[in-house]
């Protein structure tokens, strides 16, 4: 009896996962086959669910004419650097806010939380002036700075939650062994925190990866542009250049899919380690 239930459960699980997979992948599938259609077949009726002729002209177009390699590089650079800085800043702030209680701690958490409610554009012109005064306009540093700013509150909140679930006895033991607090944090706590840190890192990376508004406003230079801005240029007055757009969408998804696959390993490792003494 029990065994049959188990099999039914497994089958049910597989069905649910498969259905969800179809729901999620269909738009991507549509982008992929659109990107492989010759330009004059994209809007051909009846709709083609598989290209009649496979063509790579859209990819050639975005690399040869639109210089996508530059934008991909810029986006990777900015997203990774900003996500790395965010991790350093918020591992410290999240840890401190999880471990110590001090005056102003809860007010600070609230202040962080409230930042999430503020629509970006309020105060944007002031922010633009600040960037101008600091000489950061038209430099990628402006985006790295502002992406970091935007992510600090959320990542602090998230990481604090993960730190709270790890018993403080862990680093106390290490500190008795002679470690400083910082090295105890680095050598004992962080390895145990990998699921949370990976998830936070993915989150931070992805937020940076698809940010559009500030990237349009702060960067003028063709060679410093990011991927979302370049993709937005395919929207013209007449129509959306779906050939280029679909190819660019497919390319922009690849790094994230890889990132998820890599971070998966850390999440699994964290699982085995997370089980240490409760």
């Amino acid at each position: 009896m029990k065994k049959q239930w188990k099999i039914a459960g497994k089958a049910g699980k597989a069905v649910v996962l498969a259905l969800y997979f179809i729901f999620m992948v269909f738009p991507l599938y549509w982008m992929v086959i659109t990107s492989l259609k010759p330009r004059n077949e994209i809007f051909a009726l009846p709709l083609q669910y598989w290209p009649k002729h496979i063509s790579f002209e859209n990819y050639v177009q975005i690399f040869k004419i639109s210089k996508f390699q530059i934008y991909l590089g810029n986006s990777l650079f900015i997203s990774l650097v900003a996500a790395a800085i965010v991790l350093v800043v918020t591992i410290l702030s999240g840890y401190v806010l999880a471990r110590f209680s001090f005056r102003g701690a809860s007010q600070l958490m609230l202040a962080f939380f409230i930042t999430q409610m503020i629509p970006l554009f309020i105060g944007f012109s002031t922010l633009y002036m600040m960037m101008s005064r600091m000489g950061l306009l038209n430099k990628q540093a402006s985006l790295i700075l502002m992406y970091t700013v935007g992510l600090v509150p959320f990542c602090t909140i998230m990481l604090r939650g993960f730190f709270q679930r790890i018993p403080s006895s862990l680093e106390e033991a290490a500190m008795i062994d002679g470690c400083s607090r910082l090295s105890a944090l680095w050598r004992v706590i962080i390895p145990v925190m990998m699921p949370g840190i990976s998830a936070t890192f993915i989150f931070a990376f992805v937020q940076n990866w698809n940010e559009l508004f500030m990237a349009i406003m702060f960067i003028d230079n063709e060679t410093s542009k990011t991927l979302p801005v370049a993709m937005n240029s395919f929207i013209t007055k007449f129509d959306i250049d779906w050939g280029s757009m679909s190819a660019a969408t497919v390319l922009s998804v690849i790094p994230t899919v890889i990132l998820f696959a890599i971070c998966q390993r850390f999440i699994v490792e964290g699982l085995t380690q997370g089980a240490v003494k409760g």
Binding site: F21, M24, V206, W209, V253, P255, T256, V257, F260
Partner: peptide, 8 residues
């Protein structure tokens, strides 16, 4: 990767 890419 394939079900979470929408976030990117």
């Amino acid at each position: 990767g394939f079900v979470f890419y929408s976030w990117a």
